[in-house]
């Protein structure tokens, strides 16, 4: 019972320098993602944009929101939320992206009685 084993509140107070550095990095990355979008990189554009967004979001979560110092339970919850979002997007996308996959010609395709007779 973690709640009862420590009566102290262990608080991690971040250094101002850390916060400002993260802020600086975030601003730079914002500039970068905008700049990259002007380059013609084909499908790489979206990948880079998302990679930058993910790294920015991770920094905000890890430092500003203090995930770094939270319990592993909180970390688990954060991961669970993202995994569930992933489930929703991936499975739905799997439908849309395979909906029109080509059918291979099947041996029964020319059977006048259809595919189900012997």
């Amino acid at each position: 019972m973690s709640a009862h084993t420590h009566a102290h509140l262990h608080v991690h107070i971040p250094k101002v320098r850390t916060l400002v550095l993260v802020w600086l990095a975030l601003i730079c990355l914002t500039g970068m993602t905008t700049a990259v979008s002007y380059l013609e990189l084909g499908w790489m554009n979206i990948v880079i944009a998302l990679l930058i967004a993910v790294s920015k979001a991770s920094m905000v979560a890890w430092i500003f929101m203090g995930v770094r110092h939270t319990t592993s339970l909180t970390k688990l919850f954060v991961v669970a939320g993202l995994v569930w979002l992933g489930i929703m997007i991936l499975i739905t996308a799997s439908d849309y992206n395979t909906r029109n996959w080509t059918y291979q010609p099947m041996p029964w395709a020319n059977n006048p009685a259809g595919g189900l007779s012997k």
């Binding site: 569930w84 489930i87 499975i91 799997s94 439908d95 849309y96 992206n97 395979t98 909906r99 029109n100 996959w101």
Partner: peptide, 21 residues
């Protein structure tokens, strides 16, 4: 329970492969 919802969509024209999964 979160990965079975597509069985409500078996006759909608959902991807055959997704339906099988």
């Amino acid at each position: 329970s979160f990965v079975v919802w597509g069985h409500h969509l078996f006759v909608t024209g959902q991807s055959v492969y997704t339906a099988i999964a």
